[in-house]
Amino acid sequence: MDRHNVSEGVTAEIVADLHREDLKIQHRYNCKGLTYWFDDERKTAFCLYEAPNEEAIKEMHAKAHGQVPNKIIEVDRSVVESFLGRIEDPEKSKKITLNIINDPAFRTIMVVGIKPGSLKQALDKEINFTIARQQKSITDNITLFKGRLVKQNPDHFLVSFYSVTNAVLSALKIESEFNKGIGGIDNSHTRLHIGLNSGIPVDQANGLFEDTLKAAYSYFDLVNATVVLSSEVKELYESENMNLPTLPATIVALTPPEEKFLKGLVEFTEREWRKTCFTTDEFSRHFGYSKSGLYRKLMALTGKSPNNYLRDYRLRMALSYLKKKDLNISEVAFETGFNSPAYFSKCFHETFGILPSHYMKSINS
Rank of each mutant, 00 (worst) to 15 (best):
P341L: 05
S340M: 01
S340W: 01
I329S: 05
H349W: 05
Y359T: 04
F352R: 07
K323S: 07
Y359F: 15
T336G: 03
F344N: 08
V332S: 03
S345Q: 12
P341M: 02
P341A: 01
G337Y: 07
C347A: 15
F352V: 06
H358F: 06
H358S: 14
T351D: 01
L327C: 00
T351C: 08
K325S: 09
K323N: 10
H349L: 03
S345M: 05
K323R: 11
S330Y: 00
H358I: 04
L355N: 13
E331I: 02
F338Q: 01
K325T: 03
K323V: 01
F348A: 12
E331Q: 15
E335I: 00
F334C: 00
L355Q: 13
N328Y: 10
L355R: 14
H358C: 05
H358K: 15
V332F: 06
E335L: 04
K324F: 02
G337L: 01
E335Y: 10
A333C: 14
G353A: 09
F334T: 13
L322F: 01
I329Q: 12
K324I: 00
E335Q: 12
Y343C: 02
C347E: 14
K325H: 06
K323D: 13
H349E: 15
G337K: 06
F352P: 07
P341H: 07
G353E: 10
Y359R: 02
P356I: 08
P356E: 10
S357R: 15
I329Y: 08
H358A: 15
T336K: 08
A333R: 07
N328C: 06
E335G: 08
H349G: 05
N328D: 15
F348S: 13
L327Q: 03
Y359I: 01
S340Y: 04
K346N: 15
T336W: 02
Y359H: 08
